[in-house]
Amino acid sequence: MNVAITVNGQVQNVEVAANTLLVNVLREQLGLTGTHVGCDTSQCGACTVHLDGRAVKSCSVLAVQAQGAQVVTIEGIGSTDDLHPMQAAFQDCHGLQCGFCTPGMIMQAIDLVTDAQSQSKPLDSDAIRHGLEGNICRCTGYQNIVAAVAKGAAELSSKAKGA
């Protein structure tokens, strides 16, 4: 089947079988290997991307379901020279060790901040931990990840106010 998906702002026409997962299109057909396959059973969240603006686990979405949709991956939010505020916060707070879970953590964290801002909900430590329940890190014990998300959230919200 031919599927048109807008990935990081560019329309991509890909030929896929119906049973191809979105994550496999991103990694294998489009070369966007920042999105990781961790557990492949929708538990770990390493494959988290934004689908029409919302965090989803791309190992549990068929590529055909993304027909006509907007997908943003970790490659779409910033670059080495111009980090997204959430990426910078993970670097500043040392919110990672091996880094395997980090792209998924960051994509989920951005969703969390966007959601809290649009609902005017506070994003305290409990809310961050609840929001990261779908992302598993096997190195860090989460403390610095939570600190990074809080810092990234503060940066993004002061940016939003400044804009």
């Binding site: 686990k57 969390l112 929001g131 329940e133 779908g134």
Partner: peptide, 9 residues
């Protein structure tokens, strides 16, 4: 229910 990503789908 589940986690945030699951609740989005």
């Amino acid at each position: 229910i589940g986690d945030n990503q699951v609740r989005n789908r």
